[in-house]
């Protein structure tokens, strides 16, 4: 009886409290710092005068270049992940005998569970100007001389596609796994070709997985710090590195906080915008499909 009088989430209270203290409160503190300023060389922040000046200061040309760069790498990287992962996930879910699927999933997991930084250092070795890849490409006659990709935006793009690819393959695999063979065969029996089945049965049914995968890749990718640090050098800078440098080297917490807030806004706004655009583009298709169902009834 006494059980009923206890608040229902009581067992979750420790976790809720912990996350409020060490997740919500710190983020709010950063928001608060972003309205402050850096009073002197040896102090990191002060909040006795509140203003939007740090945001104005943050929005300088270097910042815009870096943010544009981040957005470019974020969008291109996510699209590349989707394009690369889509056939692989489909292959794993639809073409591989089920007893080997577990093994392949485990193989996708190995890079995912290898330390992020270590994987990226692996690419630093591969992409070195006189490294293996350089030698191989020279031998094939594709390039002449050293490979000049390390410490450029292309190297960062390659690095992020590599680093976040498992996060795209796994949700897509789960989504395709749910679209059973029966569904595709039914579509075929009803006269749909391969492409029609793919576009009208498999992809719409796998859509939740595609959206999850895209967000799982896009959001952390936009905040990436490690890949850009290891492979980017000065030319391949991303917003995460810029924010970090304000906290670690410049010791300007006020400006760094404003940049962090702007980065979060950029991620949220761009993801929402992309969602809106895709929704608008698909609107005519959704309408026609509804119409067909209506007639059939």
């Amino acid at each position: 009886m006494s059980r009923l009088r206890l608040p229902r989430p009581i067992l979750a209270f420790p976790a809720i409290g912990w996350l409020l203290i060490f997740f919500v409160a710190p983020v709010l503190l950063v928001l608060w710092f972003s309205f402050g300023y850096k009073p002197g060389v040896f102090q990191t922040h002060a909040n006795d005068k509140l203003s939007f000046d740090r945001y104005a200061e943050a929005l300088n040309p270097t910042f815009f270049t870096t943010f544009w760069n981040t957005l470019w790498v974020g969008v291109a990287g996510t699209l590349l992940c989707l394009i690369i992962a889509f056939p692989v996930a489909y292959w794993m879910a639809a073409k591989i005998p089920s007893r080997y699927r577990g093994l392949l999933i485990a193989l996708v997991m190995v890079p995912y569970w290898t330390n992020f930084l270590v994987r990226t250092i692996g690419w630093q070795i591969i992409l070195a100007p006189h490294g293996w890849l350089s030698a191989a490409l020279n031998w094939l006659g594709l390039i002449d001389g050293s490979l000049d990709i390390l410490y450029t935006r292309s190297a960062v793009l390659l690095g992020v596609v590599y680093n976040y690819l498992p996060l795209m393959i796994l949700p897509l695999y789960v989504a395709f796994d749910r679209v059973s063979q029966d569904m595709r065969e039914a579509s075929k029996d009803l006269g749909a070709g391969r492409i029609a089945t793919l576009l009208r049965v498999t992809i719409p049914l796998a859509m939740p997985g595609i959206i999850v995968g895209t967000l799982l890749v896009y959001i952390p990718l936009m905040g990436d710090y490690i890949t850009a640090t290891v492979l980017g050098g000065a030319k391949g800078n991303m917003a995460g590195v810029l924010v970090a440098s304000q906290f670690q080297t410049a010791q300007n917490w006020a400006l760094g906080s404003a940049m962090a807030v702007l980065l979060i806004l950029l991620i949220l706004v761009s993801a929402a915008l992309a969602g809106l655009i895709i929704w608008l583009l698909l609107l005519p298709f959704n309408r026609s499909r509804r119409l067909v169902i209506g007639v059939a009834k």
Partner: peptide, 28 residues
């Protein structure tokens, strides 16, 4: 109803880029 709010909190914790966690935890 609390499960919805708590799930939202967990989702935010899970998807926030690590760099944001890092720069907010340090001052805190």
């Amino acid at each position: 109803k609390w499960v919805i709010w708590f799930s939202a909190l967990l989702l935010f914790v899970a998807i926030t880029p690590e760099i944001v966690d890092a720069v907010s935890l340090l001052p805190w």
